[in-house]
Nucleic acid binder design. Structure first.
Lengths: 165, 165
DNA sequence: CGCTTCTTTCAGAAATTTGTGAAGTTAAGG
DNA sequence: CCTTAACTTCACAAATTTCTGAAAGAAGCG
């Protein structure tokens, strides 16, 4: 049974990767279960897993999968699809979609900018503190524009290197 | 005493900004006290405050200031300086230095890359999952290069707009 | 229309994180 | 060299977060 041995080795390698990559994501601020689910999807063959598969592979309750997936879907890091003619749901990492989710953070930037704008207004643009805040605001506005261009360059670069994945 | 009234209004405006900006940083994953200390420094006139000033303004214990500052210094978002001839320490936000710290996350990227590289190796670059990980890795490597260039462009842009701050 | 299967929600237990007071450490100033 | 002012570390209490089992909610299928 070469295959089952292969599968066994695979499972272990996969698990090792999943846990170590998830740990890094957690350290960067992501919820633990979300990180593990995401890493598991990344390391899956098709980039797609069902709730049951995730639950078993990660040894967590269906409830935990549900919570993790809700978070990941909200932040556009995975998408959910219904298996046609079944109650099963499948969760997928899209090749490029999640890059944007991970780097984009447009919503986050916008909120930071709003808070800064208010600060500039209430402290006054002519005070030292006001000027510092205004400059910070300008920085984020600058970044926001740059990110879009950067992602475009990535897409070009990616296609050259990997072909249309 | 117009000045004290001014100062009073100021204190309230400052506090309002500090708390709302800090809240956004917290939501993005920063520790609460670190976020508040950082926002307070940003909104201060000189960009410098002592431990005691932070402790009083934010209504937190010296221990909390100490912890927050340690984190912020480690991540290069503030620097610490000794007031000459005094046991007081002063904490400062540097004009440009902290932008990079906040956005750069080079160390984080490096660790993600390491975890991905291991994943590619152990799963094999010829498997579907391995290819997905390799592509993700390539993405981070790409980003890492781009960020440096982007910061350089920001410096140019900034100087044009604000003069050498 | 009810049965069955899968997912979600919810309350609570467990673990983790956070902030404080108190003791400890360092260094200026007499 | 002692005193004192300032920062740091540590142990603990409080608050928050996280994950689970159980119950409720959808949706296919007979």
């Amino acid at each position: 049974m070469t295959e089952s041995v292969e599968a066994g080795r695979d499972a272990e390698s996969v698990s090792k990767f999943v846990e170590s990559f998830a740990a890094q994501l957690v350290e960067a601020g992501m919820q633990r279960m979300a990180a593990r689910v995401f890493a598991a999807l990344l390391a899956s063959d098709k980039g797609v897993l069902t709730s049951a598969e995730l639950s078993e592979q990660l040894q967590i309750s269906p409830a935990a999968v549900s919570g993790a997936v809700r978070y990941l879907a909200q932040t556009h890091m995975v998408s959910r699809e219904r298996e046609p003619g079944s109650r099963r749901e499948r969760y997928r990492v899209h090749g490029d979609q999640w890059y944007e989710a991970l780097t984009n953070r447009e919503a986050v930037l916008k909120r930071w900018e709003a808070a800064l704008r208010e600060g500039v207004n209430s402290l006054g643009g002519d005070t030292p503190a006001g000027r510092r805040l205004a400059e910070t605001l300008a920085f984020f506005e600058f970044i926001e524009g740059e990110v879009a261009a950067m992602m475009e360059r990535w897409r070009v670069h990616r296609e050259k290197t990997f072909g249309q994945g």
